[in-house]
Computed example of a mutant assay.
Amino acid sequence: MAKIIRIHEHGEPSVLRVETAEVAEPGPGEVKIRQEAVGVNFFDTMLRDGRVNGPLPMVLGSEGSGVVEAVGPGVADIHVGERVAYFASMGAYASERLIDASSLVALPQDISNEQAAAFLAKGLTAWMGLRALHDIAPGEVVLVAGASGNVGSILSRWAMALGATVIGVAGSRGKLDKVRAGAHHAFHSQDPEALTKIRAVAPEGVDVVFDFVGHGTAELTAAAVRSGGKIVAIGAASGQLQTDALEVTRRGIEVVSGGVQDHVNTATVGEASGQLFQAMRDGLFHDLRVSRYAFTDVSRAHADVAARRLTGLPVLRV
C-alpha cells in the first residue's frame, strides 16, 4: 500500500490528509515510481486553499523523484532501477505513483533525488525565463521582482553567472539579506525611493524585468523597464500582472508570459535539464539550502510556505 496525501475540501493546512491506496501496475506508456523526495511549491498551497480551482478530492504536488519499480508496455527508454524525476505531473504527494513515461527526466549520478525534487521544477522555470521567454545576454541589466522567492533566487544567481547585472527586489526590508546574496543590488518594493534607486543603477531603465509577484509590483515593474525593453511575467503571487496597455504600446515594451510546460517539453527538456544540472555542478546555487520535512509533516510544510517562514527549498522526504 502506498501513502498518499489528499485533500477532500479546500482550507487550511489541516485539510491535508495522509491516506493509503493501492497503486496498480503501469499501463501502456506508464511507469511506476517508488518516490524518495517530493517538492513543495507555493502553487500547491493555492490549490489547497482554493485560490486555484481543482477537482476534489485531489492529490497535490507536481514534482518529485525516485526509483523506477515497473514499466508498462511500450516504454523502451526507461528501465527498472533507474533514478528519475519529473516537474509537471499532478499527484506527486505519494510514496508510490504511476506516471506517464514522457514526463520523466533521467537523473545523472551526481544529482541526488533530493536535489532533483528541490530544484528541477523551480530551476526549469528559471531556465524558461532566461532562455525561452528572454534569451539573456551578457551586459544586460535585469530586475527580478520577487527575488527572495525560490524561483527568483535561482533565476537571479543564474542571470549573474550569465553576465547580467541583477537588481533584486524583495517584498519587505526583512528579506533584503536573502536578496543581496544573489544579486548585485537589492531593494524592497515598500521603499518609496525604490524606483529612484533602481534608476540610479539603470538611468534609462532596465533591459528586462522578471516578475514573480504580479499585481503587487505592476507599477514598479512598468516604471523600471526602459522603453523598448521587456517584462517577463512568470508568477502571480499577489494576483495577475496588469499593465497599462496603451502606455506599454507607446513605449514599445514587450510583455511575455508562459508556463513551464509550454516551453520545457519533449523538444527542449534535455537541453534545459542539462543546463540546470551543469549550473548545479558549477555551484551557482551552493548557498540555497533544502528545507526537509517528513512526508507526514506536510501540514507544517504548507504552513511554513504560506507564512514565508522557509529557510530553503521545501522537500518532503518519503
Rank of each mutant, 00 (worst) to 15 (best):
E82F: 06
G54E: 14
G61K: 01
R17F: 05
A37C: 12
G229C: 10
D282I: 02
H79I: 10
A37M: 12
V18M: 11
L220C: 08
A233K: 02
S112M: 07
A200F: 07
H185I: 02
V80Y: 10
G123Y: 08
A218T: 06
E63I: 04
S257L: 01
I7M: 08
V75K: 03
L288K: 05
P57W: 03
V298W: 10
V213N: 04
A137T: 14
G29S: 11
L56A: 13
S227Y: 06
D211N: 13
P28M: 11
V142Y: 01
A137E: 15
R157N: 12
I111G: 09
K178H: 12
T268A: 10
A126D: 03
V142F: 00
K230Y: 01
R17Q: 15
R97E: 01
G61F: 05
H79S: 14
R48G: 10
L176R: 08
L120K: 11
T249F: 15
H10A: 11
V209K: 07
R226I: 06
S112R: 03
A126T: 06
F119H: 07
P57F: 00
V209L: 13
M90L: 14
I136M: 09
L276Q: 05
E69N: 06
R199I: 09
D282W: 06
V15A: 12
F42H: 14
A183W: 07
A170I: 01
M58R: 14
L47P: 05
H184N: 15
E25I: 01
V209T: 12
A279C: 04
D282S: 13
A218C: 09
G174Q: 12
G72E: 04
G139C: 03
E271K: 14
L56D: 10
H286A: 15
V142G: 01
A132D: 13
V75Q: 06
L195N: 08
L107A: 02
R83P: 10
G139W: 00
I33C: 07
Q240Y: 11
R281W: 07
H302E: 08
L220N: 02
S89M: 11
A186K: 03
I33R: 04
A121W: 00
H10W: 11
A194D: 08
G174W: 10
K178A: 14
G182V: 06
A116N: 05
A159E: 09
F43A: 15
G74Y: 03
S238G: 11
F87M: 10
E19V: 01
H188P: 07
I5N: 06
G74D: 08
L155W: 02
A145W: 04
A164F: 00
A94F: 00
V23I: 13
S95F: 00
I111R: 06
Q115W: 07
T243H: 11
D297G: 09
G258W: 00
E247K: 13
M58C: 15
F43W: 09
H8V: 03
R281G: 07
L124E: 01
V23Y: 00
I78Q: 04
G239F: 08
L241P: 02
G61W: 01
